[in-house]
Design a binder for these strands. Sequence first.
DNA 1: TTGTAGTTTCAGTATGTTTTGAATACATTT
DNA 2: AAATGTATTCAAAACATACTGAAACTACAA
Lengths: 180, 180
Amino acid sequence: MSDFQEIQDKITLHWGEMGNKWGINKTMAQVHALLFISEDPLSAEQIMGELQISRGNVSMSLRELINWGVVYKMHVKGERKEYFTTEKDAWQFFKIISRERKKREIDPTIAVLRDVISDLEAANEPESVYARQQIDSLLELVEIGDNLYDVIENLNSANLTRLVKQVLEFSQRRKTRAEG
Amino acid sequence: MSDFQEIQDKITLHWGEMGNKWGINKTMAQVHALLFISEDPLSAEQIMGELQISRGNVSMSLRELINWGVVYKMHVKGERKEYFTTEKDAWQFFKIISRERKKREIDPTIAVLRDVISDLEAANEPESVYARQQIDSLLELVEIGDNLYDVIENLNSANLTRLVKQVLEFSQRRKTRAEG
DNA sequence: TTGTAGTTTCAGTATGTTTTGAATACATTT
DNA sequence: AAATGTATTCAAAACATACTGAAACTACAA
């Protein structure tokens, strides 16, 4: 067991925990981490061995990661085995995670809020006025999130740096203005 | 059972599900929703009744929401009961959620990545070079998230609108430039 | 056609999280 | 200080989710 092997174990283990905190299945996160830091593609067998998880679990996790578009199947010529590799660009990976979160968090929330608003409109009772106002302001915010997701989707890595710079400068300007 | 009562039930029910998707405990989300759309403060008893949940659960959920700083205890004069109300401003609420997510997601991820990087540096093995490079680029991104959280924290509702406008304009400019 | 690799399904199990409800503690009134 | 109303705590139960291991299946290269 080399030094690197130990570090690799540490990375996949911890990344599993992190995935959990980010609402991503632990094994999926581990499989992804393993592929992300491995220069060469790995077979399902190898993943099983490295992470000490069952065949079925590897298969399921890979399928879901492939669905997300973050892992690719590769045929290595002269080999019968299939090999798997991952999107190696961190920004691309982040964009995919954002998309999944938008699907899971933002889209259904907008749907629910709009639905509720139309109910409140229909009811037209005195009590509903205040509720309506509160829900409206929530929806407004979630829709901002929705728009910002579109920005991320259309942003490449170089422009990300520029945009972040602009945002930080904006924030700095407001802060000094408030202080001055 | 009034129309409004039914809508209220629908709101709290659905908001519980949404909370779940956002990584917030279902009951906490329901309690928050109820207080958020109620113009007047409510007692623990009322919350129990409205949401049909146990005394203990109400107490736990309120405590956690109070810890987050999103719910306040109120003493109503002439009443022995304690009453509870919520931060009514959606943007303020969103900022609090962001803070909690940063604590749960970003901070520990940065810690893990930095830790792993120092291990990889120490190991100094040939295999670790690629892994190092990959982890570096992840850390870079998560640190951007960290900085953006600070921006949110220091942003008031009026400036939010301005900032979002700037960001959308930036995105639009890049898009037309790419197309043109 | 055989053997290898991967996939799918599923019952059983393990693990983690949430909720309950009874006991306890606290606070206020009489 | 007793009685009453209210809030908190926590062990146990309920619930939800993830994982395993085995079996049956698909695909395909040799």
